[in-house]
Design a protein around this nucleic acid. Structure first.
Lengths: 337, 337
DNA sequence: CTGAAAGCGCTTACAG
DNA sequence: CTGAAAGCGCTTACAG
């Protein structure tokens, strides 16, 4: 069982009251300088730290932000987390992170758990399963308890809260436009995330851009089963005379590159490839992948800033929620012409 | 500011005392069935949840484990985290994770912060900077406060605590033995982690195994600057007549494969490649990388189990610490013969 | 300048 | 069977 020095013990040893010790540690002007010094000295000696549980119980705030991520082996979320962490710690907030692993049940469980642990607010992206089932009741508790919530990336229209999203549709358009500009005529879109809000938007963008250009066509390869993704992409590349691939998630484009190697197709000479998310796979593919960067770190920082703002306005019990859109960038590397 | 129903409010509305309500919620046999039912009904209606801060303050335990990771964009640590999480949540424990980003200062800060937040125990791998500076004073606080600590993977001999490590030296030996068995004569070892305990052990293993085999030689490529890693590996491959590469961290082997593509070297025909860590890069390289798996998930679960055991033995204030070793496996894929 | 008292939301030994 | 009281470790308005 953990042991810690308390105000009580310091008070006893100094022959002072608990109140005086408490005030001294805050350098309260009420207290004589001499007493303040005595108290600090002993506190330092014992390495006294106030008990955070007691402080939080009293103040009704924990200075903690709960963060829920669908997945962590994903550079986008990992970087968002980093952005949140930076901004939060700059402002004296801690973060507690839970990974839902794309499970609705886990998401519900973690929201309850963190709410029960009295985090001051939430930042989260919905799990895949939650988006598919479209069950959002677990967020009503937060509303009822008056706990602010910021959703990012994977959001739901049915929850009224602040949101930070990426301009996914525009991003796809920009990518496709680049492919067309460099001479591609038959563009494949590979997606494992057609169930997600972001996947839908990205696909829509590609469709719109293609249909706005005469003589260019789109072939869609939706992948249901991650297990067979490689094989599906390989046979797709073999059986379709395409000259470009747009991968809508982090891995699809990388796999397209690998399968092209296998089939002996040159990149970018025969096939141009663009992916989403500036992650490890993109950096360590050969040739290096041209990608859409979602500026994950900025996005995280932005979400944190909005939350901190909500937390500082303790007065307003209800407020008008807002949605901010983060602009993406197309980063040209070696997998496109 | 968050609002929550409390025992007090329930008591008032039910015309009962706080004690009776509290006991009823726990189905205490002292209380009449009728009262218990009344209380539960209202509690359900209001969705009452006890305030975790108050419970923890009273019980002096938070059911929370603090986890410190050097890096998260690293499959090994991400999977260890997953293993810890599984085991912890199975036993009603939550985890709070902090990423040190290989910084000594951050590590000190987080240890203090989590200790101050009253986590029940710690599981951590040291940051690179901490291992280089070899400053370990921040763990004395934990000892003084009687908070159990489990170190894994990157550990220090100078801290007396439970440890879970990987048989890194044997792992390298096994890898090199396989290379030799398949006919490799001149083996390169590429390392960006020669400062780390694990990096040293892996290198040692490779050296020992090579010197035990006549006619086989080792070439070492230590890389100081991650920025120029690719170029260094490329020119190394060009200027050395090697027939095998052992990459001691997650990325080195992947880069070796990419640079081989660039130089037109066939894998595994001309060069065999083995890497450490069964991560995304290994899975999505072409050809698929033969790797040493450290069984990260098991390792995490094991660390959690040891900690939970320590936490359940509240009686013992001092105990004999132990070190457990997790066996690695060589997983043969397509980058070796 | 210092301290006693109330209170944050719980739990539990004790009294009735 | 129910409740008053003490206490976990703090903060702060109030009294002296």
């Amino acid at each position: 069982m953990r042991k810690k020095v308390t105000l009580k013990q310091l008070a006893k040893e100094l022959n002072l009251s608990i109140s005086t010790v408490s005030k001294s540690l805050k350098n309260d002007s009420e207290i004589s300088e001499k007493t303040i010094n005595r108290v600090h000295e002993l506190a330092n000696f014992y390495n006294y730290k106030p008990n955070a549980l007691a402080v939080s119980l009293k103040s009704n705030k924990t200075n903690t932000i709960g963060v829920l991520l669908p997945e962590i082996l994903n550079h986008f979320y990992a970087k968002v987390l980093y952005g949140i962490e930076q901004e939060a710690s700059k402002n004296g907030y801690k973060i507690v992170t839970c990974i839902t692993n794309e499970s609705y049940e886990k998401e519900v469980e973690y929201v309850e758990m963190l709410n029960y642990s009295s985090v001051d607010g939430f930042i989260l992206a919905l799990s895949k399963e939650t988006q598919m089932l479209n069950k959002l009741d677990h967020f009503k508790d937060l509303k009822r308890d008056n706990v602010p919530l910021i959703m990012f990336d994977r959001v739901s229209n049915e929850v009224d809260c602040d949101k930070v999203i990426v301009d996914d549709k525009d991003a796809s358009k920009t990518a496709v436009r680049h492919l067309i500009k460099t001479g591609c005529k038959k563009i494949a879109v590979i997606s494992t995330i057609f169930d997600l809000s972001v996947g839908k938007l990205r696909l829509e963008g590609a469709r719109e851009e293609v249909s706005a250009n005469r003589g260019v066509s789109l072939v869609e390869l939706p992948i249901n089963n991650i297990e067979t993704e490689e094989k599906e992409i390989e046979s797709f590349l073999k059986n379709n005379e395409i000259d470009a691939v747009l991968g809508l998630d982090e891995t699809a484009a990388a796999i397209a590159i690998n399968m092209s190697h296998k089939l002996g197709y040159k990149i970018p000479e025969k096939i141009s490839v663009i992916g989403f998310t500036d992650g490890l796979l993109a950096k360590h593919s050969y040739p290096k992948l041209t990608i859409i960067s979602q500026h994950a770190e900025d996005l995280g920082a932005k979400a944190a800033r909005i939350l901190l703002e909500r937390l500082s306005n303790t007065s307003e019990n209800s407020y008008k929620t807002k949605t901010e859109i983060v602009k993406t960038s197309l980063i040209l590397r070696d997998s496109t012409i």
